[in-house]
Design a protein around this nucleic acid. Structure first.
Length: 373
RNA sequence: GCGAAAUUGGUGAAGUGGUUAACACGGUGGAUUGUGGUCCCAUUAUGCAAGGGUUCGAUUCCCUUAUUUCGCC
């Protein structure tokens, strides 16, 4: 499905202000997608997501395949109906990342990847065709082609073979997608920190007829400078008229730096995972709300934040909930953290419009990192 | 009143005549980037009820006191 993506404005620093269309309406980029691995953004209701200005969410093929099974979701009429998320699009990840993140004895062959299920140890085979078939049944708006996300670091030789295989898998993924008219499909660029392989992967993937292109294999343990280069090596060779999605990146500074390198969409578990561990994202950096200094602090997490949490609850109360292991505390911070990132993207869009994103970056960085040693 | 047993950090507790008193919880910090939600890392008792004695050395043995628990009149 054509997303009708268009770049509205490209700023002098390389950032793009854009827009695309789905059956749910128009969506502005750059944007951030909260992650809902198991058909739920952990602890949040669809209403809360909407209120936090989450426009689109990500869900996961691998997890839904294992439980409850794609047929169960299909039976409910697709993911949107199943989870009653009716306000925006859903993108499903292909399951490729789990090869890396599960880090079990893995067997990667031309055919696909052999896993042991983390639920019952059963031997499973995920192939490009199977991943697409599952995503077709899940009925997401955007599906990802099946890739391998190698760990970091890995030898140039390993990465070269992996990139070439991922490219062949991309073609098979594209061929397997019979619902192309209803679901958009993205390809994934890999190549690790190697400029030649990133370039090769970007150019060759771009030759395939995808609706968007993502940059994968980033934020897997590399240092900050390497991370930015990985992105640059890829975006330099991606078509300008297609959406670019940087997978798994969500640190506020990384979002800004990604946008400057021409990225349009991001996803990350960070806001919700940090929330479950008691950490709030703020303009002044991360704040661990479990810290004793908040015991009697009646201020909200951020005074000028428009989220439900900040409009109604104090740090003192949230700290109490966290310390008492009440899940409402995790939920309140999740709401705030997601809103923090969607607001950051709104600010970024505004500054692309004004073409002063680099100045915004400096101001933001100064304040965000000032408490870091 | 008599007899017996016990007394280790904020809590539950292990332990030994000899350099840093186990473990768990709790506390305090930290970590966290396409999520295997309740995980991970660090730190947290200069002291073993109090006082005295034996000993090269005692939290560990002995005595006294205090407190607690259980029996008996």
């Amino acid at each position: 499905m054509d997303l009708k993506f268009k770049v509205i404005k490209e700023s002098s620093c390389g950032a793009r202000l854009g827009e695309f269309e789905t059956r749910w309406g128009h969506h502005k980029t750059p944007m951030f997608m909260p992650v809902g691995t198991q058909a739920t953004v952990k602890t949040l209701s669809p209403e809360e997501l909407k209120d936090a200005h989450a426009d689109i969410i990500l869900s996961n093929t691998y997890h839904l395949w294992l439980r409850p099974g794609e047929d169960v979701v299909d039976n409910a009429g697709g993911l949107h109906n199943f989870m009653n998320y009716k306000t925006g699009p859903i993108l499903t990840d292909c399951g490729g990342f789990q090869v890396f993140s599960l880090a079990k004895p893995k067997d990667i062959s031309e055919e696909g990847v052999k896993f042991k299920s983390h639920l019952d140890g059963k031997n499973l085979l995920l192939t490009p065709e199977k991943s697409i078939e599952i995503q077709n049944k899940l009925g997401s708006d955007i599906i990802m082609s099946f890739d391998e996300c190698p760990p970091y670091p890995v030898t140039h030789e390993y990465m070269k073979n992996s990139v070439e295989r991922t490219l062949r898998w991309a073609k098979r993924s594209l061929d397997a997608n019979k619902k192309r008219d209803t679901q958009a499909q993205f390809g994934i660029v890999q190549g690790g920190e190697f400029p030649d392989l990133r370039k090769f992967s970007a150019i060759e993937t771009a030759k395939l007829d995808f609706d968007g292109y993502s940059v994968g294999g980033v934020s897997v343990g590399e240092d900050g400078e390497t991370k930015l280069k990985m992105i640059e090596y890829a975006t330099a060779y991606l078509p300008k008229d297609k959406i670019r999605y940087l997978m798994g990146v969500g640190e506020p500074m990384d979002l800004i730096d990604g946008v400057i390198r021409g990225i349009d969409i991001f996803d990350c578990v960070l806001p919700t995972r940090l929330a479950r561990h008691g950490n709030a994202l703020t303009r002044d950096g991360r704040t661990n709300l479990k810290n004793a200094r908040f015991i009697k602090d009646l201020d909200p997490i951020e005074k000028d934040c428009d989220c439900y949490t900040c409009k109604n609850f104090s740090k003192s109360y949230i700290r109490h909930l966290l310390v008492s292991e009440e899940s409402f505390g995790q939920r309140l911070i999740s709401i705030h953290n997601i809103r923090f990132l969607t607001k950051l993207m709104e600010d970024i869009r505004e500054h692309i419009e004004k073409d002063d994103l680099l100045e915004f970056r400096e101001e933001f960085k100064e304040r965000y990192l000032k408490n870091k040693k």
